[in-house]
Every structure is written in structure tokens, then in C-alpha cells.
Simulated assay, not measured.
Amino acid sequence: MVDTSKSSKEDATTATSRAEVIEAVKDNYIRTVDEIAKVQPQYLQSISNLQLDYIQTTKNVIQTAFSVQKQVASNVNIPATPYADLFVKQANEITNNTIRAVGINNQLTINALDAARENLKIYNRSIDAVTDFGTNVAKAWTAFYTQSQQQFTR
């Protein structure tokens, strides 16, 4: 008869060591992700502040450029053309169409981001289901293997 008590103790110690290593690696990954998550709001705020500064700078450049043009135009006596009203009307239409296009683009972008977020939720649920399946397969295989080993050691 074979003494399996020493072998069983070594197997249990090895399995415990493996489980501890896996748990430590998992904890380290989670800690890393948590640290990244801590600074994410700061990044978002910095990006938002940068965007607001760009917008303000762009508005300032536009105001300054047109202020200079307006001063030059007021000092030069150029007769009004019959096309001035038509030009203003067309410029307003182009601007309105551009604003509508930007609004549509913004809504499409928000919808795409919401869909991506929903896909991440679905992916997360899928990973949970696959993990459960894998765990059940491992348990079934372990039970089968254990029963087979017990039959041979009798």
C-alpha cells in the first residue's frame, strides 16, 4: 500500500501557494487600476480647463481680428454693394447649418459613447458567465479526477 498522506500534504501546500500567488497578483492589478481611477477626475478637469482656455482664446482671436478689419473698413470710404444683404443672409444660413451639424455630431458622439459603455457592461457580464462556466468545468473535472484516483488507490 502507498502512503499518500505526505503527498497529499505537499499537494495541499502547493495548491495553497499557487492560490496565494494568484491572489497577490490579482490584488496588485486591482490596486493599480484603483490608482489610475483616483487621478482620472484630475485629468478630466485639466482637459476641460484646457478646452475652455482654447475656446476663450479662439473667441479673443476672432474678436481682435474683426475689430481690426472693422476699424480699417470705417476709415476707408468703400460704397456698399448691392450684394451685402445677400452675403449676410448666406453667411447666417451657413452658420445656422454648421451649428445644427455640430449639434447632430454631438448627439451622435454621445450616443456612441453610451453604446460603448453599454457594451462594456455586456462584456463584463459575459466574462462573469464564462468564468462561472470555467469554474464549473474545473469543479467537475476535479471531482471526476478525485473519484478516479480513489478507485486506483483502493
Score class of each variant (00 low, 15 high):
Ser74Gly: 03
Asp128Gly: 11
Ala116Ser: 13
Lys26Cys: 07
Asp53Val: 06
Pro79Thr: 12
Thr57Ala: 10
Ala138Phe: 03
Val25His: 04
Ile30Ser: 08
Lys121Ile: 15
Ile47Pro: 00
Tyr54Met: 09
Asp11Trp: 02
Ala37Cys: 06
Gln42Ala: 13
Gln107Lys: 08
Gln40Trp: 10
Asp34Ala: 14
Pro41Glu: 04
Thr153Asn: 12
Asn60Tyr: 07
Leu50His: 09
Ile22Pro: 00
Asp34Trp: 04
Ser67Leu: 11
Thr57Asp: 11
Tyr83Cys: 09
Asn49Ile: 02
Val68Asp: 07
Ser5Ala: 11
Gly134Ile: 05
Ala143Tyr: 09
Thr98Ser: 08
Glu93Asp: 03
Asp85Cys: 04
Ala140Asp: 02
Ala112Asp: 12
Asn124Arg: 15
Pro82Val: 15
Ile22Ser: 13
Ile36Lys: 04
Ile62Pro: 09
Asn77Ser: 14
Lys6Thr: 13
Glu118Leu: 13
Thr57Ile: 11
Ser17Tyr: 03
Ser8Gln: 06
Gln147Phe: 00
Leu108Phe: 12
Leu86Lys: 15
Ile47His: 07
Asn97Ser: 04
Leu44Ala: 01
Glu93Lys: 08
Ser46Met: 10
Ser48Tyr: 03
Thr16Val: 07
Gly103Tyr: 09
Thr131Ile: 07
Lys59Gly: 07
Leu44Val: 02
Ala80His: 11
Gln40Lys: 04
Arg18Lys: 14
Thr16Arg: 01
Trp141Asn: 10
Thr16Ile: 11
Pro41His: 06
Asp128Arg: 14
Arg125Cys: 02
Val102Asn: 03
Val76Asn: 05
Val137Glu: 08
Ile36Cys: 05
Ala129Cys: 03
Thr146Gly: 05
